[in-house]
Simulated scan of single mutants.
Amino acid sequence: MGDPHLHGAQEDVLGNYIVQKGLTMPELRDEILAQLANQVWHNHNAHNAERGWLLLAACLSGFAPSSRLDKFLLKFVSDYGQNGFQAVCQHRLMQAMGRAQQQGSGAARTFPPTQLEWITTHEKANMALDVSCFNGDQFSCPVHSWSTGEEVAGDILRHRGLAEGWRGWTVAMKNGVQWAELAGHDYVLDLVSDLELLRDFPRQKSYFIVGTEGPMAGRGCPRMWVAMWATFTQMASPGQQVLLA
């Protein structure tokens, strides 16, 4: 946090490396979160304190604390969060805790945060995807770090008036001629993070269904195709397209 030579993308890469350590080593998660809380506690250097809160929020975007720590950490960020990070960390932590209640204490993303997540966390802003359906419908869909493929697809279907049958849908992303499909219970932004990570980054194995001739036909789960454009433009190179399946 106190390194004056780290700036911009370098900070994000180092932050992603720390988050990745928590993703791959569950026994370190509480220790990482506790150390970050200790670093921001009464830190009188405003710049270093902001770096610490930013990294804490990024960690909470990727993995949940254990049940031994979660309520104490929620109390800490609620009482001592600074410069807008109180609400940011509260929301991320409560989303992570909710996911842990559903999936168990080991709830975690597959990959560290995307560039979009780093930017919106720094700006204390919400994320939304500009969605363009193939039938011409267009609207914005709010997402957060813990949004799953099924949740995003379900939000879109309900917005379009489908009262029943919206469960079981998921998300796919097109990158040139390659398609990557996401299991409904996995996280939408992991698709983007997988593309953004440096080639030699120590990433985990993903279980996306990858094909080069378009989304797989004849599978049991229902699908629809919705193009997500503007929000991902800053991260995706030409030819990359995020779709709902």
Rank of each mutant, 00 (worst) to 15 (best):
L28F: 11
L28W: 08
L28Q: 14
R29Y: 07
R29E: 09
R29A: 11
R29F: 14
D30A: 13
D30M: 14
D30F: 13
D30Y: 12
D30S: 13
E31D: 09
E31S: 14
E31H: 13
E31W: 06
I32S: 04
I32G: 03
I32Q: 09
I32Y: 03
I32W: 04
I32H: 10
L33K: 04
L33V: 09
L33M: 15
A34C: 11
Q35P: 00
Q35W: 09
Q35V: 09
Q35A: 15
L36W: 00
A37L: 10
A37E: 08
A37I: 02
N38T: 14
N38C: 10
N38G: 12
N38L: 13
Q39H: 06
Q39A: 13
Q39E: 12
Q39T: 13
V40M: 06
V40P: 00
V40I: 15
V40L: 06
V40Y: 01
V40S: 04
W41Q: 13
W41V: 05
H42Q: 15
H42F: 12
H42R: 15
N43Y: 00
N43R: 09
N43S: 09
N43K: 06
H44E: 11
H44M: 11
H44G: 04
H44W: 07
N45K: 10
N45A: 09
N45C: 08
N45E: 07
A46H: 10
A46F: 00
A46E: 15
A46P: 00
A46L: 12
A46D: 06
A46Q: 13
H47C: 02
H47N: 07
H47M: 05
N48M: 14
A49F: 00
A49L: 13
A49S: 07
A49Y: 03
A49R: 10
A49V: 07
A49G: 00
E50G: 00
E50F: 01
R51M: 08
R51W: 05
R51C: 02
R51E: 06
G52L: 05
G52T: 06
G52H: 01
W53Q: 01
W53N: 04
W53M: 04
W53A: 06
L54D: 01
L54C: 08
L54A: 05
L55P: 01
L55E: 03
L55R: 01
L55S: 01
L56N: 04
L56I: 10
L56Q: 04
L56W: 04
A57G: 08
A57R: 04
A57V: 01
A57D: 05
A57Y: 00
A57P: 01
A58Q: 14
A58L: 14
A58H: 04
C59E: 08
C59N: 08
C59M: 09
C59F: 01
C59A: 11
L60P: 02
L60F: 03
L60A: 04
S61Q: 15
S61R: 12
S61N: 10
S61E: 14
G62F: 06
G62D: 07
F63V: 08
F63C: 06
F63G: 06
F63I: 12
F63Y: 15
A64L: 13
A64W: 02
A64Q: 08
P65W: 09
P65F: 10
P65S: 13
P65A: 15
P65I: 12
S66G: 15
S66K: 11
S66A: 15
S66I: 15
